[in-house]
C-alpha cells in the first residue's frame, strides 16, 4: 500500500529537518578553512589551509588525541571481554537473578551520564582512588559494556545451543568450542559492538568530566578551547577529525549488522 511519490509537503519538511541537523556540522567544516581567527564571521573573509599546519604543530592537541585513543581502545577491550562473558552467561544458562543482571548491565546507558559521572566520582572519592587515566577508562567501560553486551546477546540467541553440544560431541573441549564454533558465529556482532563502544568513548564528555584528574581527552580539550579566543579554527580542524574518527566505526557497525535482526544498542 505504498504510493510511489511522497507529497511535496513531506519532502520539504524532511529536507528542512535533515538540513537543520546537518548544516551546523558543515559550518564547522567551513570555519576550519577561514582566515579569520578571533570570531566566527560569515561569510569567511578568506580561505586558507594554514590551520591544519598550526594544529599539526600543537602538542596539546596531540596529547589530547593520544589520550582519547588510548582510553577508547582500552575501554573497548574491557567492554568486549566483560560484555561477551556477560552475554554468554545470560543467554546460555538460567540462574536466579538472571533478568536482574540483564537489567543492571543495561542501566548505565539508560541513566543520564551525569548520574553515572557523579556516582563514580563519589565512589572513587570514598574508596580513596586518585583520579587518573584508569578512572576515565573505568567510567567509559560502564557504558561501553552495554553496547557490546546488547550486540552479543542478540547474536548468542541465534547461535543454537545444539552447535555447542555438537562441537563437544565431536571431541572439542570448551576452549576449542569457543575458538572454532562460538567466536566465528558472534565475530561480526562483537566487531560492531566494539566499534560503537569505541565511538561512544571517543567523544564522551560528561562522565569524563567527573572521572578525570588533570588529563584532557579530546572532547574536554575542545570545550576548554571554546572559551579561549585564540587560534579558534584549530578547534574546527580537530572537530573534523573527531567526526571522521567516530563516524567511520559507526558506519562500519551499520554495514556489519545490516541484514540481521541485531540492532546495535537494541534493548536500550
Amino acid at each position: 500500500m505504498r504510493s510511489d511519490r511522497a507529497p511535496l509537503g513531506l519532502k520539504v519538511a524532511a529536507t528542512c529537518g535533515l538540513a537543520f541537523m546537518h548544516l551546523p556540522i558543515l559550518l564547522i567544516f567551513v570555519y576550519a578553512f577561514t582566515t579569520e581567527d578571533k570570531s566566527y564571521q560569515w561569510p569567511p573573509p578568506g580561505v586558507t589551509l594554514k590551520w591544519f599546519a598550526v594544529t599539526w604543530g600543537r602538542t596539546d592537541v596531540w596529547e589530547a588525541l593520544g589520550l582519547s585513543l588510548q582510553v577508547a581502545s582500552i575501554s573497548t577491550v574491557i567492554a568486549l571481554v566483560l560484555g561477551t562473558l556477560c552475554a554468554a552467561a545470560v543467554s546460555r544458562t538460567r540462574f536466579f537473578g538472571r533478568e536482574t543482571i540483564s537489567l543492571l548491565v543495561i542501566l548505565p546507558i539508560a541513566l543520564p551520564g551525569i548520574i553515572t559521572g557523579i556516582s563514580l566520582r563519589s565512589a572513587f572519592n570514598l574508596a580513596d582512588i586518585p583520579f587518573s587515566f584508569w578512572t576515565i577508562v573505568l567510567g567509559h567501560a560502564t557504558f561501553c559494556v552495554v553496547v557490546v553486551y546488547n550486540n552479543a546477546v542478540a547474536r548468542f540467541r541465534r547461535v543454537s545451543g545444539n552447535l555447542i553440544e555438537a562441537s563437544m560431541d565431536l571431541g572439542a573441549n570448551s576452549f576449542q568450542t569457543f575458538r572454532y564454533v562460538i567466536l566465528p558465529n558472534i565475530a561480526t556482532a562483537l566487531l560492531a559492538g566494539g566499534m560503537l563502544a569505541f565511538a561512544l568513548s571517543f567523544d564522551e564528555v560528561i562522565v569524563t568530566t567527573f572521572t578525570a584528574g588533570q588529563q584532557q581527552t579530546l572532547p574536554i580539550w575542545m570545550l576548554e578551547e571554546l572559551v579561549r579566543p585564540r587560534e579558534r579554527p584549530v578547534t574546527n580542524v580537530v572537530a573534523m577529525v573527531v567526526v571522521l574518527v567516530t563516524f567511520l566505526p559507526i558506519l562500519g557497525a551499520y554495514y556489519l549488522t545490516r541484514g540481521t535482526e541485531t540492532v546495535a544498542g537494541q534493548g536500550k
Binding site: 545444539n162 552447535l163 553440544e165 564454533v181
Partner: peptide
Amino acid sequence: NTVFQDYALFPHLNVRDNVAYGLMV
C-alpha cells in the same frame, strides 16, 4: 558420536570442514 535432531551443522563452515571438524580438533 551423535546425529542431532536438527543436525546442528556448523553454519559458518562448508560441508568438508563440517565433516572434518572432529579430526581437526
